[in-house]
């Protein structure tokens, strides 16, 4: 049985759904962060799969950009989490509601 493009799509969808649910449901900031990474990588997977399937390298190039942005995001995001932890002694996002109007 050949692994067709449909399999990739299904996996990617499952992974993305898991990530989205993690972001929406979990309260630990690190977990949310990891869920975000999961969603990004599910998108990467789909990009690479379609690139191979269509024989066009553009999708793969885009993946590199996404990875770079994700790396930067991790750096900034972790720094933010550390700062929040230092002031709040907690990384529970329920405790952080400074933006409340």
């Amino acid at each position: 049985m050949a692994v067709t493009i449909e399999w990739y799509i299904a996996l990617s969808t499952i992974l993305f759904t898991l990530g989205a649910l993690g972001v929406l449901l979990r309260r630990n900031a690190i977990i949310i962060f990891m869920s975000v990474e999961l969603m990004l990588n599910s998108a990467n997977l789909l990009l690479v799969a379609f690139a191979h399937h269509l024989g066009d390298a553009t999708g793969q190039v885009l993946v590199f950009f996404v990875m770079t942005v994700a790396a930067a995001e991790v750096a900034v995001g972790l720094a933010l989490i550390v700062a929040i932890f230092q002031s709040k002694k907690s990384i529970d996002i329920g405790d952080v509601n400074l933006l409340r109007g």
């Binding site: 972001v23 929406l24 309260r27 996002i93 329920g94 509601n97 409340r100 109007g101």
Partner: peptide, 18 residues
């Protein structure tokens, strides 16, 4: 009135986003 929509809760914002 609008003000009450801004809860400051990250989860809410994320839900809105989705």
């Amino acid at each position: 009135g609008l003000r009450s929509t801004q809860t400051g809760n990250v989860g809410n914002y994320a839900l809105g986003l989705f």
